[in-house]
Design a protein around this nucleic acid. Structure first.
Length: 271
DNA sequence: ATGGTCGCGGAGCGA
């Protein structure tokens, strides 16, 4: 028997998952944590009472948790595996146009700054909700610029509710009047990306025209693979330099009592 | 598509 000494390329594994209701999805979430054991998990759409969050069950699964919830709607969370440092940086964006809506949490763990984002949907176009979406994106743009200036590895993860390009949807025609792919929504996302962020999923899968992360519960969207791509990882240059892989856990969308989003994953080389 | 499905909260809204 010979001993082999290998240099291990350690990785940090990050997942972003819009779970569409924590109470209904907790069994799926706990199964997912047990199966994939990601180091960091960003959750969106908890839709749960802040005082009814399952901190004990998540801790039993091996995770420390930071929650930013509100009753019935929205809600984001940040989970970090193991006993390492987990530091809350902020809950809510600076100068949030509607701070009662729990849509942003930012923390530091595993040597990274990571945000969990639930960007406003914005439908219907032309409504106050659409204006709120664009205002929120302007605030995110400001904050993203401040994060870049720190010149550290930063990951902005979450449900952006923006379809970046026509090839990111099953049907341009079906979505033409949706807030998720209006030119203003796309331009607002591009303004952020063009600051110097890398869209990790597209970077890793440059030619995949069915790189979807969401399939509606309606109209048999899942069996028809009628999805679109709205969950994104934006990486600062210092994080992009460490990009090892990214993808969609598409299998999760086919489970019983699945969320309408699939978890998306990102792997970074260790520093 | 005049609909179609979910989750939360316990009716109707948000997605």
């Amino acid at each position: 028997m010979r001993l082999r000494i290998e240099l291990l390329d350690l990785m940090v594994n990050i997942v972003s998952f819009n779970i569409n209701g924590l109470r209904a999805r907790l069994p799926r979430l706990l199964e997912f944590l047990e199966r994939e054991k990601p180091d960091i998990v960003c959750l969106q759409e908890l839709k749960g009472e802040p005082d009814a969050l399952p901190t004990d069950q998540v801790e039993a699964a091996g995770y420390k948790a930071l929650w930013h919830g509100q009753k019935g709607f929205n809600g984001v969370a940040f989970l970090s595996r193991g006993d390492g440092d987990l530091k809350l940086r902020r809950a809510g964006l600076p100068d949030d146009p509607a701070p009662e809506q729990a849509r942003y949490i930012e923390a530091e763990a595993h040597g990274l700054i990571v945000a969990s984002i639930y960007l406003p949907n914005g439908n219907p176009v032309g409504s106050e909700k659409f204006g709120y979406k664009l205002e929120w994106m302007a605030r995110l743009e400001q904050h993203a610029a401040a994060l870049l200036a720190e010149e550290r590895p930063v990951v902005l993860a979450g449900d952006y509710n923006v379809i970046p390009e026509d090839r990111d949807t099953f049907s341009v025609k079906a979505m033409a009047h949706d807030a998720l792919m209006q030119p203003e929504s796309r331009a607002a996302l591009r303004r952020i990306v063009h600051q110097g962020w890398t869209d990790a999923l597209r970077q890793v899968h440059p030619d995949d025209d069915r790189l979807y992360t969401f399939w509606d519960y309606q109209a048999a969207a899942w069996p028809r693979d009628a999805g679109f791509r709205i969950d994104h990882f934006l990486l600062s240059p210092q994080a992009a330099d460490r990009l090892a892989g990214a993808g969609v856990h598409k299998w999760a969308r086919g489970e019983e009592k699945a969320s309408d989003h699939a978890p998306v994953w990102l792997q970074l080389h260790d520093a």
